[in-house]
Amino acid sequence: MRSVFLALLVAFFATGVAAHVARSNSLRDEKLTFNPTNVHVKRLAHTPRTLTNAQRLARGLNPARPQLRSSRRLAGRGGPSLTPTTTSTSTDTPTGTDTTTSTDTPTSTDTATSTDTPTTTSTDTTTSTDTATSTSPTPTPTCTAHTGVLELTGGSYNGYVSSETNSFGEYSVTTDASEALQVQYQECDGAVSYGPINFKTLNGLSTYPYLGGIVGFSSSSDNLASNSPNYVYLGGTQESAAGAPPQRGANSFSAASGTAKDYESAIWSVDPTTGAFTAHWVNTDGTSSAPTIMVVQDAIVLTDDTFRFIQTYGDAVIVSLTFAESSSAAVPPQATSSA
């Protein structure tokens, strides 16, 4: 009888402990979700893919070819004749006076008067006007705008960072080159581009024109470090200074989800030889992290500890990014920030 009682008591405690663990795990999983759940997301505006020639030139791109609205040839327009006009008048009078007037464009006038008197008068008048306009030379631009796309490879992925975002304002992946996100950075005064620098998006989110990192929804802080599953999304942000810690302000994730999160934009480096595209995140205490880039669900994220992240949020694929340059052009400083 006693043994039966002890068995029932052990079973009771075991059941209670299992229920507590299951309930704790359920609450933990519900809290630590990669993206928020049961929220109404706001649709964000994207930059039109067709840019005006002024916008293209400001971004260091070549002008687009003109589109003819009609196949009919344009009729020639009438204009003034380019043939010079010459007028000559000769008059002979009994008094011995001979006057000749000749006009040829450009204007030149010669007048001669002769009479049969002891006094002879000769007048030669020439009028010439030459006007030259000079302007000061335009200062030579000191910056080069580099434009291209971000190739994404790793695991089963072989594509590009997409110009489209998911419903939470996070950039995703595409295999269609025509849908790739076009980015641009400036290299000024011969400085190398190892970074960290800002990358502007040309056909991404119009209100948030910089490619930045946005603190993840379930990150416990703004810091990326080992032994932490914290992460940041790739999304659209405003511009932040190189070396600055996370900033409070407008970004695509906060606008879409309604959840305020901090961001950084000047976190990128690109190898000018290989195009290798890497990130450098600045923590709130000034220390920095060189996070790994991963694809999770339909988003691209950065994390310092891939093991802790996968253990917490599930499967992820480690990928690498490469800047594939399509064009470059000399521009005045800050020309890439104009729309």
Rank of each mutant, 00 (worst) to 15 (best):
132 A>N: 10
36 P>C: 10
327 S>G: 13
236 G>F: 01
118 P>V: 06
190 G>Q: 06
72 R>W: 02
127 T>G: 08
231 Y>E: 05
136 S>E: 12
48 P>E: 07
209 P>C: 12
334 Q>A: 12
176 D>P: 08
253 F>N: 01
291 P>D: 10
232 V>C: 10
119 T>Y: 09
291 P>C: 04
179 E>K: 15
31 K>Y: 14
235 G>R: 00
292 T>A: 15
248 R>L: 06
326 S>W: 02
28 R>E: 11
74 L>C: 05
317 V>F: 02
246 P>I: 00
336 T>V: 12
112 A>S: 12
98 D>Q: 11
136 S>W: 00
64 A>C: 04
198 N>S: 15
170 E>N: 13
264 E>L: 03
102 S>R: 11
151 E>G: 14
9 L>M: 12
306 T>E: 13
202 L>Y: 06
224 L>C: 11
308 R>G: 09
48 P>V: 10
157 Y>K: 10
68 L>K: 11
34 F>Q: 02
29 D>V: 10
184 Q>D: 06
129 T>H: 13
299 A>L: 02
113 T>P: 00
52 T>E: 08
223 N>R: 08
24 S>V: 07
204 G>N: 07
216 G>N: 06
147 T>A: 07
168 F>K: 00
86 T>N: 03
50 T>Y: 07
86 T>L: 11
77 R>D: 05
1 M>C: 05
218 S>M: 04
230 N>V: 01
34 F>L: 13
57 L>K: 15
86 T>V: 15
274 T>F: 06
264 E>P: 00
192 V>C: 02
333 P>M: 08
186 Q>I: 11
25 N>R: 13
312 T>G: 03
334 Q>P: 00
131 T>W: 00
218 S>I: 01
273 T>C: 03
227 N>M: 09
259 T>N: 14
153 T>C: 04
244 A>F: 01
112 A>Y: 08
284 T>V: 10
201 T>W: 00
143 C>K: 04
219 S>L: 01
238 Q>W: 08
80 P>V: 02
23 R>D: 09
277 F>G: 01
144 T>M: 04
197 I>H: 09
318 I>N: 03
226 S>M: 12
113 T>S: 09
178 S>D: 15
122 S>N: 08
220 S>N: 08
273 T>P: 01
172 S>F: 05
46 H>E: 08
291 P>I: 01
68 L>D: 13
89 T>G: 06
219 S>C: 01
318 I>Y: 02
179 E>S: 14
199 F>A: 04
293 I>E: 05
321 L>P: 00
64 A>P: 06
237 T>L: 05
109 T>I: 13
109 T>M: 04
124 D>Q: 10
102 S>P: 02
291 P>M: 09
244 A>Y: 06
188 C>Y: 05
40 H>R: 14
280 H>T: 07
60 G>R: 06
271 D>P: 08
338 S>Q: 15
